[in-house]
Design a binder for these strands. Sequence first.
DNA 1: TACTCGTGGCC
DNA 2: TGGCCAAGAGT
Length: 362
Amino acid sequence: MTIHKKPAASALLSWYDRHHRELPWRISPAMARRGVKPDPYHIWLSEVMLQQTTVAAVKAYFAKFIALWPSVDDLARAPAEDVMVAWAGLGYYARARNLKKCAEAVAADHGGRFPDTEEGLKSLPGIGDYTAAAVAAIAFNRQAAVMDGNVERVISRLHAIDGPLPGSKPQMKEKVAAMTPADRPGDFAQAMMDLGATICTPKRPACALCPFNDVCLALATDEPERFPVKAAKKEKPVRQGAAFVAVDEDGHLLLRRRPDSGLLGGMTEVPTTGWTARVDGETGTDAAPFAADWQACGTVTHVFTHFELRLGVYRVHLARTEAGAVHGFWAPVTNLDAEALPTVMKKAIAQAIPSAFSTTKG
DNA sequence: TACTCGTGGCC
DNA sequence: TGGCCAAGAGT
């Protein structure tokens, strides 16, 4: 006799009790049983950092932020520039700008306490469908349907959903909602994500260890890796430009601040041409911040989400008076960690001045 | 809806 | 080694 079984939250929670990962922002089931409650500020901060970002990359930044700003009120009072400096290197810098705005809103409009419902959370900057549900479930024990990329993969396999993403998202969300228990919804959400991260992986899933291997329709097809089906990707264009690294007689570097919106918004850069400009021979230094004896010192390549950038790097050493009035500011090359430099700019600076980040990360 | 928006690790 | 992917949000 064959009985069609549905995937049960209880099977997953049992697996989670035995196999969950310890994470700095997480309250383990054992701690929860002792009455330890999650700090909504920690949950929110970690969830924003984890948007499209790996756990490994987030850990150090989470520790830094908690040390610098122990509460949401502290973060609300911090200078925005300090937040951008602390976020530098983590990517998707709109998150940092919205993080600050969200902290200010919580401090000013909610008495320093996060809203405890999905709806209230989603009204805040930088909190969308996923993060609202995750914070509601994990921090406030709300029965919210939490769906990230991990959960999409797990659900698409459990139900062998053929419809390609992102169009099939609503259908998957219904499946998650139907499965989410009233008891321990936060642990359930974290369990689904842990399962996707460690067992139901994109390649070579460990189905033999999966608590759902008796009900998974994708496994029954013998091609679990075929799911989730995704729309075809667009080709990644190449853009190019030139970056100019000027160093004065005191070892100061000419930097600029990028506009607040758009790519690398609000971050610091060395002067560059536009990123579609040709860089061939003598035309390369036409758009330099000032006329000087610019020396070509190689090229750096950096891959963004939707294009690849190739920057020809030029450098010059000169007295600051020779540079004249420039747009930007001069910062000591020995203290670049104090600047909100995205990785692509650290690469360009390191190309011109190999020792610039030798004692730090780079 | 479809596009914009970073970075690092993985196989 | 290069494509893929990661606890997505804003517009």
